[in-house]
Design a binder for these strands. Sequence first.
DNA 1: GACAAGTATGAGCAATTGCTCAGTTTGCTG
DNA 2: CAGCAAACTGAGCAATTGCTCATACTTGTC
Lengths: 207, 207
Amino acid sequence: MTTKRLQPRKRATQQRAIDTRQRLLEAAARVFSEYGYAAGTTNRIAEAAGHSIGTLYQYFPNKDAILVELATAHATSGIAAVQRQLDGDPLPEMLEDRLRLFIRAAIDNHRGDPALHKVLFEEAPRPPELLTMLHAAEDQAIDAAGILLGGDPRVSVRDIPLAARMVVTSIESLVHRFVTHTPPVDLDSFENELVAMLTHYLTGNSR
Amino acid sequence: MTTKRLQPRKRATQQRAIDTRQRLLEAAARVFSEYGYAAGTTNRIAEAAGHSIGTLYQYFPNKDAILVELATAHATSGIAAVQRQLDGDPLPEMLEDRLRLFIRAAIDNHRGDPALHKVLFEEAPRPPELLTMLHAAEDQAIDAAGILLGGDPRVSVRDIPLAARMVVTSIESLVHRFVTHTPPVDLDSFENELVAMLTHYLTGNSR
DNA sequence: GACAAGTATGAGCAATTGCTCAGTTTGCTG
DNA sequence: CAGCAAACTGAGCAATTGCTCATACTTGTC
């Protein structure tokens, strides 16, 4: 059985090495985004970074590790954006405005490089460790949403945990779909519409 | 330049050949579903079907053609399910019940083999011809939804085409997400919730 | 039974890929 | 400058993959 190396053989310490590592990561983002995962070969990534293939394997133990690092960075930035809203200024009064805050954060987090995002979260085979991390992040978001919804008297929906899951999943899925949609759609209109949809869902009392 | 064969070298005429082709397709579904696209090698597919690799290439010009045929079959069955609702018995009176009809059709169309669906529509590289077909199918669904929504006095949303896109995309995306979710979620509750969300979105008049 | 057309086989080719490692270059430190 | 570790190189190995083709078996027809 072939044991898979998990650690790079070198940790960059000098500034030159740190730069090299960074250039490799950026090149990987570009190559994955343009060629997809399978055709985004490590040789191509190294070439795009202006380095040899050997250098790439000094800093990344294998191809998957590069993908995991890119995906983790994206997820982390998403979590950070949401956390920033929760920690910072007091949340707006209106439920509608609160939803808009989170929806806008999600859109911003996708807008950077939709093609890369598509590769990272759809096409590429995600190693179990990464999947675990992503699920945990989602569950965390759902829990937080549940607390926010549960404490809001304007929320008239019955099953709060389910509603929290609906809201978080809707934002994630629809933002992903609309941002990666070709031809591009008007994201401002979409934002308004998604805010309206979730507001009506959460506060609507007909039935 | 290598020209890519587009037609299989033989069209099955005898019953035995038709069976073989069918067994290869079913094996491909199983293998793709279990191993994913990249690791779902043609040799593995042939082996799973109990045939030699040469036989596979008698009936399919290349690996992509197998994927396209599976994806097309899935999309076709989805379109057919919706069309059956539109052509058959008169649609229910209530907007809510109409939505439920389509949502249920979507869920049923995914329930068969979620893992395969994930491979076909997320992981695998989809050839342009297939993408074109899928986009056309979606646009067609959006148009149909637009007509249905436009003629309904209970629909209070302003931008009908945008609302139609929201509804169709929501059903597609969320059904996909919830059906492929691990651990499994209660699909009946989800169905109720999605019906409620879209109903409130379309008929809600606050703002 | 004989012939042809249809069907099935599978060893192996050509191409690609992830990755190694022996050797070279760079730049910090005394 | 000398010495040396860190950083970098890239030819090429081992493994895998999609696919071919010469050969052999099956089936229907007369």
